[in-house]
Design a protein around this nucleic acid. Structure first.
Length: 337
DNA sequence: CCTCCACTGGAAGATCGGGAAG
DNA sequence: CTTCCCGATCTTCCAGTGGAGG
């Protein structure tokens, strides 16, 4: 029943976007100075996950490239490349293919210097999940590179601004921020209809099934599309030719589990042990957690290191830290409501 | 009110691994 | 080969926070 799986992939950018005209237009207008050879102010796309920020950023930047031929548009996901060094490396890698940059032994300052020297074309960097960047000073360096402009993407504006120093804050004042809200159900249905039309056999789905998916996705397009994909896979496994209600029911928890599983796999052995303990306990106090951890692994790290792990796992949305100081407990994000 | 103490998280320094330079 | 230098990771140290209990 699947004719083309690509439109169901998380990173797919459609050649035409729906329901985000205003956002696209604002972002296009922000970037327009590039065509005249001027440097645009940074743009800041803010909103919860699955509201189309990444998609619209990539889409708009691609359009810009069609109009102004020599624009480079490197994309960095700061969740994956969270250290300043890796972010810089990724940008340069996309710009120059980084042939002679070796993973270590090239100091960070030199990477910045190379970015400054790059003058072949104006550069628009998309920094996705920029609130996950652990050292925001890098933004300041990037702001000062002439010929480089930025599209910043963050879940919550406060999370970003809260950590910034004054000099960065004042720089970001000039940024125009574009707010993304969760999709209403009908818009999700339309998005799903497009994806289904591009990727599934025509007679394989009905709008009522897509609507069920849209309703359960709570405004999150990523969850909706992943659910559709899981449902289609389920049908293929079971040899069904039609998207059924059973398939949709199966798909929703599976889509969520898949997102979770991806995050767990990225953890180290120690971190996975911690995650298991929290998962088994449901809710656990710090001292008990550390004690259980010491018993579980052969060569336990110090408690301070464990706190760094927990912070990281919280950013991955695997666990939640509830309360402060003495009242702190760690909760499995899955059972947390 | 005050003191205790479990807990947090910043800062600085040690150590590791890998590539470059000598 | 050794030495040097880098980022990444982990440890050590510690000031700060706020709830519990005198």
């Amino acid at each position: 029943m699947i004719t083309d799986a690509r439109p169901l992939a998380p990173e797919f950018v459609p050649s035409d976007v729906v329901h985000r005209d205003a956002e696209v237009n604002t972002l296009s207008a922000n970037l327009r100075p590039i065509i005249r050879g001027e440097q645009p102010n940074p743009s800041l796309l803010v909103g919860p996950s699955g509201t189309g920020k990444t998609c619209i950023a990539r889409y708009t930047v691609d359009k810009l490239r069609e109009e102004a031929l020599d624009v480079e548009t490197p994309y960095v996901n700061c969740w994956e490349d969270y250290s300043p060094y890796r972010t810089l490396y990724r940008i340069l890698d996309e710009l120059t293919r980084a042939v002679d940059i070796h993973r270590t032994s090239t100091p960070q300052d030199e990477l910045v210097e190379r970015l400054r020297e790059y003058d072949e074309a104006p550069v628009v960097v998309i920094l996705d999940e920029v609130d996950q960047l652990e050292d925001k000073d890098l933004l300041y360096d990037l702001f000062r590179v002439t010929g480089l402009s930025m599209v910043l993407i963050a879940n919550r504006e406060e999370a970003l601004y809260g950590e910034l120093e004054d000099r960065l804050q004042s720089r970001l004042q000039t940024a125009s921020s574009i707010r993304f809200d969760p999709y209403p159900t009908q818009e999700l249905v339309n998005i799903l209809t497009d994806r289904a039309r591009w990727s599934l056999r025509e007679d394989a789905y009905e709008e009522s099934q897509l609507r069920r998916i849209a309703e359960s996705a709570a405004g999150d397009a990523r969850v909706a599309i992943m659910t559709l994909r899981e449902a289609a896979r389920y049908c293929r496994r079971e040899g069904l030719t039609q998207l059924t209600s059973t398939a949709v029911d199966h798909a929703l928890p599976e889509a969520k589990a898949e997102i979770r599983q991806k995050n767990v796999e990225r953890l180290t052995e120690d971190q996975q042990a911690l995650y298991e303990i929290v998962q088994e306990a449901g809710e656990i106090r710090p001292a008990a957690l550390y004690e259980a951890y010491q018993n579980r692994v052969d060569d336990p790290k110090t408690d301070r290191t464990v706190r760094n792990y927990l912070e990281k796992m919280e950013r991955y949305n695997l666990i939640c830290a509830r309360g402060e100081n003495r009242g702190r407990t760690y909760v499995d994000a899955q059972t947390e409501h």
